[in-house]
Design a protein around this nucleic acid. Structure first.
Length: 739
DNA sequence: CTTGCGTATCTTTTT
DNA sequence: GATACGCAAG
């Protein structure tokens, strides 16, 4: 029931299509918005927020808006600000973790922390867990720490505290000691006044569950809840939302079950499938008008995803007037190198006809695939960026600098102290550290304090003692300076006086200058925050990688990283059984794993606005050796009328003899699955055979020498003037004609 | 504490 | 094939 039915229509509403509008205007009660790819889900979310404010249903501070990534949160914040045209301070808009951290700081004492608790990153978590396992006398070889870490995280994802672990769930690891180790780890976190990422959610759920008065308080505050990417929520996030939504039942979740691709990190697609059961009388709105892609791309993606069972069901319709377009190309190639070449050539061609590189992307299943393309792009001189490489905050120098600041802000931060005590090298190795630990454990004091006692007690050799003493005095001095001159100047002083910058200046490796640059950037970033603590909180939660994103560059990334993005032209290489769908995914996840892979393919296809080029190679170098593979079953699942199959010239001309049966249509022994091989076996569209193909003036490509132009032909020997190499006479069969 | 060698492993990744 | 890690020697 539209609230403002009688009133003149606000123009932010008139810009919506009917289904979007329905989703925006259904303000009361639970609402699930099933938003297919490219159907304007962010628009619905932000407009709904604005509508809540405009209709005076709530003040901005009474709406809780949850996203998964900081990027999504930022985007939403900006768009909300643009619509409501007033400052957006005091908003409860952020990631699950950021919001939980904010809430937890108010109730930390209820779980044995103080409001100044530190948020640990994965590295710290692992080290802490190793210490706990060590103390418990676990044989680290028989029971590797990452295994337990994963188990602990899975428990936390499901909202399971040590007390809630059932004996049945505690048999796999270290002979049934996982639960005890988990408990010890949690104790240790509490001692250190730390929380890991999982704890942020876990603690808040525990608090809301056990303290009705606290819960009631939050109910009073949040009248409306908006959730983005609901299909990616894990159980503990679901519990948190359900607890908070109990108050007013005004929860609106937006998501797409067909784009659930994160089960391996705890996301439960069941959350979205179950929504109507969880929230009785829930309204469901489907957004099916796609404004992004052409009709053939939508048809191909829809045909593919239709092979999944257990969907809520949606059909994407082309919503654009200009939705006609080229069919999806499916290109079969001889090997991964040829695949890289094919992609490179098409990119060059697109570039020549004026397409910006920023509108082109190569989306791969696994990280290692990027390398072949990178090499190719470098030879061609095409600028590119790899999305999702090492992030700024993950770099060693940034983590070290962070650790210094953490010790400065919180001397009891043992993990940070341990990280920097011997970085740069101060001659404080295992022995010195062990002694500090002994004192710390005996007296139940932080490492830094124990270090002070160790210096005074004289239980350390002269040189090591001097070094440690100097470091501790340094911290006393910097802490004093922090109060006087502020965090930015102090950080710079600290990094210099501790010898940390000097360490990188001495370093002769090629990365060292870049690292020093990063440190400068780090200090600069520090200036954007009012206080040291504000900065630390930010960095602990936010992980951004802004560099080399400028300029017109091609994007190279994994399918996972591509979710939420869109490009005019998308290359989807490596559609081969074993790689995509990935064999591991199927081994571990069975049919469900396969369906998630299929969703990943769906995500990939729906990134494309105008053109999608899918490819597979018959041979691929994996782990050093060549292995042959058969085309992905997903290729068979693309509706034939919306795709166009192509073979490569290289294959047709020279290599028919070596071609695996599947490529020629003969029945093959290579097929592992009992499925129709015929459909996968298309004929390679051979170009007209040209025995002595090349002519003077042809542009050709040579694997080793790159591009060139034919200057002379003598039977099967060809003279070529190469662009990046000296002129040579080479055999015809090593050349490829480039159109 | 650092260095070198042998061995095991090789999907996806945010907070 | 490359890297990362653990272990033993220097």
């Amino acid at each position: 029931m539209p609230v403002s039915a009688a009133a003149p229509q606000p123009d932010y509403l008139t810009r919506l299509n009917p289904e979007q509008r329905e989703a925006v205007e259904a303000l009361d009660g639970p609402l699930l918005v099933l938003a297919g790819a490219g159907t304007g889900k962010t628009r619905v979310l932000t407009t709904r927020f604005a509508h809540l404010i405009m209709t005076q249903r709530a003040f901005p501070g009474q709406v809780l808006s949850v996203t998964f990534t900081n990027k999504a949160a930022r985007e939403m914040r900006e768009r909300v600000a643009a619509i409501i045209q007033r400052p957006v301070e005091g908003l409860w808009l952020g990631t699950f973790h950021a919001l939980c951290a904010r809430m937890l700081r108010r109730h930390a004492e209820l779980v044995g922390l103080t409001s100044a608790f530190t948020i640990l990153d994965t590295d710290d978590q692992m080290r802490l867990l190793k210490q706990v396992m060590d103390a418990a006398g676990i044989d680290a070889k028989r029971w590797p720490a990452p295994g337990l870490m994963a188990q602990v995280q899975r428990w936390k994802d499901r909202g399971i505290t040590p007390a809630r672990v059932t004996p049945a769930e505690d048999t796999d690891y270290a002979g049934g000691r996982a639960r005890a180790l988990y408990a010890a780890y949690q104790e240790r976190l509490k001692d250190l006044n730390c929380a890991d990422f999982g704890d942020l959610m876990l603690h808040m759920v525990e608090i809301l569950r056990d303290h009705p008065e606290v819960l009631a308080d939050w109910h009073r505050r949040f009248r409306y809840i908006l959730v983005d990417e609901y299909q990616d929520t894990n159980l503990v996030q679901y519990l948190w939302l359900r607890l908070l939504a109990q108050g007013h039942r005004n929860i609106c979740c937006v998501g797409d079950d067909d784009q659930s691709i994160y089960s391996w990190r705890g996301a439960e697609i069941e959350n979205i499938l179950r929504f109507e059961k969880d929230f009785p009388n829930a309204k469901v709105v489907r957004l099916e008008s796609n404004y992004r892609s052409t009709r053939p791309i939508l048809a191909a993606a829809s045909g593919l995803i239709a092979h999944n069972s257990g969907r809520l069901g949606k059909t994407l319709r082309a919503g654009r007037n200009d939705a006609d377009g080229e069919k999806v190309r499916v290109v079969a190639l001889w090997d991964s190198e040829e695949e890289a070449r094919m992609v490179g050539e098409r990119i060059e061609a697109a570039q020549r006809s004026g397409h910006p590189l920023a509108e082109i992307a190569i989306l791969v299943r696994a990280g290692f695939q990027t390398r072949a393309f990178e090499e190719r792009l470098i030879t061609l001189g095409v600028p590119y960026r790899v999305v999702g490489g090492l992030k700024f905050y993950e770099r060693a120098e940034i983590r070290d600098a962070m650790a210094y600041l953490r010790v400065l802000a919180q001397p009891s931060d043992d993990l940070a102290f341990e990280r920097i005590v011997n970085t740069p090298k101060r001659g404080l190795g295992d022995t010195a550290l062990r002694k500090m630990h002994e004192i710390a454990r005996a007296e139940r004091i932080p490492l830094a304090l124990a270090a002070g006692k160790l210096v005074q007690g004289g239980g350390l050799a002269g040189k090591a003692r001097m070094a440690l003493s100097e470091l501790l005095h340094g911290f006393a001095r910097w802490r004093e300076q922090l109060g006087r001159e502020g965090h930015v100047v102090t950080a710079a002083t600290l990094l210099d006086e501790s010898g940390y910058t000097e360490m990188w200046k001495q370093d002769k490796s090629p990365e060292a200058p870049g690292r020093l640059e990063n440190l400068k950037e780090f200090v600069r970033a520090l200036g954007e925050f009012e206080s040291l603590n504000g900065f630390l909180e930010h960095v602990a939660l936010v992980m951004e990688n802004d560099e080399n994103s400028q300029g017109d560059r091609l994007s190279l990334m994994t399918l996972h990283a591509a979710k939420g993005l869109e490009f005019d032209m998308v290359f989807l290489p490596g559609w081969e059984e074993g790689l995509f769908p990935h064999s591991r995914a199927m081994e571990e996840g069975g049919e469900k794993g396969l369906e998630e892979e299929r969703r990943l393919a769906y995500v990939g296809l729906t990134r494309a606005r105008k053109q999608a080029i899918v490819s597979c190679a018959a041979n691929r170098r994996m782990y050093g050796n060549w292995s042959s593979s058969i085309p992905s079953r997903f290729l068979d699942e693309l509706p034939i009328e919306h795709i166009q199959r192509e073979g490569s010239a290289g294959m047709a001309r020279n290599r028919v003899v070596d071609m695996p049966s599947v490529f020629t249509g003969a029945s093959g022994l290579t097929a592992r699955k009992p499925r129709s091989i015929e459909s996968a076996a298309w004929e390679v569209q051979a170009r007209p055979a040209r025995s002595s193909a090349l002519r003077v003036g042809d542009r050709v490509f040579h694997q080793k020498f790159g591009y060139g132009r034919v200057t002379g032909v003598e039977e099967n020997r060809v003279d070529v003037a190469f662009e990046k190499s000296d002129p040579k006479r080479v055999l015809d069969s090593f050349l490829e004609l480039v159109s």
